[in-house]
Design a protein around this nucleic acid. Structure first.
Lengths: 160, 160
DNA sequence: CTATGGCGTCCAGTTGACTGGAGAGTCAAG
DNA sequence: CTTGACTCTCCAGTCAACTGGACGCCATAG
């Protein structure tokens, strides 16, 4: 069992629609089916279909049976998506960068802006959380677990 | 226009179902309708119904016409909810404290725990955000807006 | 009487990124 | 031919906290 036992050997799946190539040329598969892409990328099939539906992950074409066929570079695309997701970008933002890529340009300048914005969002969020933390801390500093009842107040510590 | 011009004078709305009270006693309304509570609390009617549905805001009873009637203390209850929401507690958590209150006890000890947990959640979240920020910062520190193309990489800066 | 407005229930939609399932078609192995 | 794995589309549900709308009853002013 040295080699030649791919879990999803999906090469010869469909009559590749090319004509007039020299016979004996290397077998160039037109694409992999979604299950192969799923197992190679580690993402669920459902997620891949969802990405395709959003336009993040275009399929090369459909097989005669209606199956999505993906190119090899779909894997790189998914890596790109995964990376940007871990950096906190939304799929919509990622789609923007991919659109730049698909237009033939490098998305780096675009991404620099997006990631810069992401830092700002994070800073804003951290500020909010710190403020909230401060408020909670202050509240708990003077907290009495068993205070005297204060009129109709639900919680005397909060004065409400 | 000194007084006596409430926007929603909903006192005499329904025949209060009490019998045998001394005549001449102060008019004690059995409750206010949802619109009155809405305008006095500043919350939308829809939200109040939603809270009631969740069990956060029990109505005293229904009028003969099927209208929810709320007690005066509903206002305090809503203040309590509002306050805890600004402190980041979920409605479910707030409901827990209200349940303690409704059982006749002070919710302070319970709340102390909840708010302590909230601080921990915040700390965790801040740590995550700081880590993410660091990663983004590091990435952008060496960022090249217009790098050379690197093979099939979508973004050379990210190496994906 | 009507007209108006408040209130009732029930159902659906919002946001984001999926996830689950039904029911049917495809395809290769045995 | 059958089986089983794989795939398709379409629809619904998840989480939270609402929000919007349709349709109909209730109550009161004129």
């Amino acid at each position: 069992m040295a080699a030649a036992t791919p879990a999803h050997a999906d090469s010869r799946s469909d009559p590749t629609p090319r004509a007039g190539l020299p016979p004996g040329a290397a077998p160039v598969p037109v694409g992999m089916k979604i299950g192969a892409l799923a197992s190679r990328s580690g993402l669920p099939v459902k997620t891949l279909r969802y990405y395709e539906e959003l336009g993040l992950l275009p399929a090369v074409c459909r097989s005669s049976g209606g199956y999505r066929l993906f190119a090899e570079d779909s894997l790189r695309r998914l890596e790109f998506i995964r990376r940007l997701k871990t950096l906190g970008l939304s799929l919509e933002e990622i789609q923007g960068s991919l659109a730049v890529h698909d237009s033939g340009a490098l998305p780096c300048a675009d991404l620099e802006i997006q990631l810069g914005r992401q830092i700002e969002r994070i800073d804003g969020r951290i500020r909010e959380l710190r403020q909230l933390r401060k408020e909670l801390q202050g509240l708990l500093a003077g907290w009495q677990s068993n205070p005297a009842r204060d009129g109709e107040l639900i919680c005397p510590n909060l004065q409400v």
